[in-house]
Nucleic acid binder design. Structure first.
Lengths: 216, 216
DNA sequence: CCAGACACCCTACTCCGGTAGGGTTCCCTT
DNA sequence: AAGGGAACCCTACCGGAGTAGGGTGTCTGG
């Protein structure tokens, strides 16, 4: 279980990032754990080293950058496991995080023990969404909270296409609705899949579980 | 709009069925509308005549027969439009009805005017789910109410396959999980599609919108 | 005892979804 | 002026999904 594991930890409070990084080194068998405290530092770190096995991301980054960061990260380092931490126990947060491609979610005030188990689970390829219930779990009443296309790092057009994908429309129908060629729709779909880190439209649909997008 | 339209109306209270049938004849341009008040009568009527353009089905039939009746009907007469009526405004009802393949849903106490518009919408190929919001609408909080495979007229095996389909698993994976050949899975899938009146798995997923089945 | 339903397997085919790799236009920023 | 990104179009290809049409064995109810 203690392979060679590297981590990148981002939290806008440097001490927190540092603390987590140290914990990973001393208690989780990581041989590398770099703490950063802002987004550009984060990308720098990514560019100057091999993709880490784990990224720990604070949800409340300035300007709400975390969601797009998650998406972007999943895109650039598909193999990196994503653990999101937040001081906030809002179900909506957890929900959005799941959509954006995180592999796990934890409250900051969680005990080190739990933290360690979550990390272990992620490294093994499992998910960890607080209390072990996959974010599809029933205690999150799925309030149809709208997710904006922008939050997911999508273009406006991709957002329109995604909205129809979620209704279950096939490419041909979407093309008709938007007066496009089927091929163009396919390209938008490909873009969406890439962004959301899904392998096909079914994964997208099950991830977003019948949620609605901004512009209806 | 007033083609030759025929209807079959089932309600366990004969007077209600009769009243609706008359309304269809006098106000909706139907040239045939047969009221029946129990299930066997219903199937008899179906066997002895061409599939009607519209079926009006009371949700509260004895023994909760309406759900399986809907599924069965959709299977035997795919072209028949299905309007479900209920005295009950429980969101769960509306939800289940949508799953079972109904094209529209109405409260019994709805005004004749609305009733007429709903019927017209259905005959045009549209859906009608109370207040025009497609049953995907936001005012139904989607309580993850479990639907049993049996309620949908599925076999146990089909239920297992469906559960995995809803998680977004491809046939190959389902086959592995159940130790089956991919082909066998395909056949179960085909059976499910037939039953639920869907054209592909995506329609199934969007219809059931991430709900859970009985046996996990 | 036999019909029918169910579960299981097979080959062969079609169609749609998604990828790859070409191209044009518009617009925005450098 | 030049580059980049987004939107749009095309052909060609591959793999998964779903259908068609064959087959086997088991169990259950008339």
């Amino acid at each position: 279980m203690t392979y060679s594991a590297s981590a990148l930890v981002i939290d806008d409070h440097p001490m927190v990032a540092r603390g987590i990084a140290n914990f990973l080194l001393s208690h989780c068998g990581f041989d590398q754990a770099r703490p950063v405290s802002n987004v550009s530092e984060f990308w720098d770190a990514l560019d100057t080293a091999a993709p880490p096995s784990l990224a720990v991301v604070d949800f409340w980054l300035p300007e709400g950058a975390s969601l797009s960061l998650l998406v972007e990260l999943k895109l650039r380092c598909p193999s990196t496991r994503l653990l999101v931490i937040s001081a906030d126990d809002n179900a909506a947060v957890l929900d959005k995080v799941g959509i954006a491609g995180a592999d796990g979610f934890l409250h900051k005030q969680e005990s080190p023990d739990v933290f360690g188990r979550a990390v272990a689970a992620l490294l093994q390829g499992d998910s960890w969404f607080q209390s072990g219930t996959q974010f599809a779990g029933r205690e999150f009443p799925n309030k149809e909270l709208p997710v904006t296309a922008l939050e997911l790092g999508l273009t406006a057009r991709q957002g329109q296409v995604l909205a129809m994908m979620l209704k279950g429309l096939p490419n041909k129908r979407i093309a008709l609705n938007l007066s496009l060629s089927e091929q163009t729709v396919k390209e938008h779909v490909t873009g969406i899949l890439e962004r959301l880190g899904a392998r096909n439209r079914i994964e997208v649909i099950t991830k977003l579980r019948g949620r609605k997008l901004e512009g209806s």
